[in-house]
Amino acid sequence: MIDATRRTLLKGSLAAGSVGVAVGLLSPRLALADWNEAAFHAKDIPTALTGLMGSDAPETSDRIKIKAPDIAENGAVVPVTVETDLEGVTSIAIIASKNQTPLIASFDFSGSAIPFVSTRIKMAETADVVAVVKVGDKLYQNAKSVKVTIGGCGG
């Protein structure tokens, strides 16, 4: 709870304009974990990846395991699990390649985290679910095709 209050206070002081002072005192990771608007609004995967991870040329690796259904009856709820045994993973991104804005989520790991994440995503149509894993400065990816019977992004 103490920490939550601290965060709120710091955000408040940032907003108030005392940016110079506040930034110097903070660990940049926590304070500047701003939502990456450019990457999340990108309409294609290279733009999204460059915006998010600084490169758009991941190497394919079968050490990244993607668990997702072969056929998803409801595109609004597609369970996806990404796991890897690569060492030193700092983040994992999940992409639905044919969605209007393909980048769905990115997960940054720290401390004693294990490179594993599971969530549920929306898919507009049959497409590849791509997982991109960042290790140091290098990017690795793997993909799994998911057939969508009813799209989950329309009305």
Binding site: W35, V77, A96, A105, I114, S118, T119, K122, G152
Partner: peptide, 24 residues
């Protein structure tokens, strides 16, 4: 007090989001 994971999402995550993660 240790941050294990920070997730950044778009609207592409399903309604009433589910999230699972692990740590040592």
């Amino acid at each position: 007090d240790e941050v294990i994971m920070t997730a950044n999402w778009s609207g592409g995550v399903s309604k009433n989001p589910y999230l699972s993660f692990k740590f040592k």
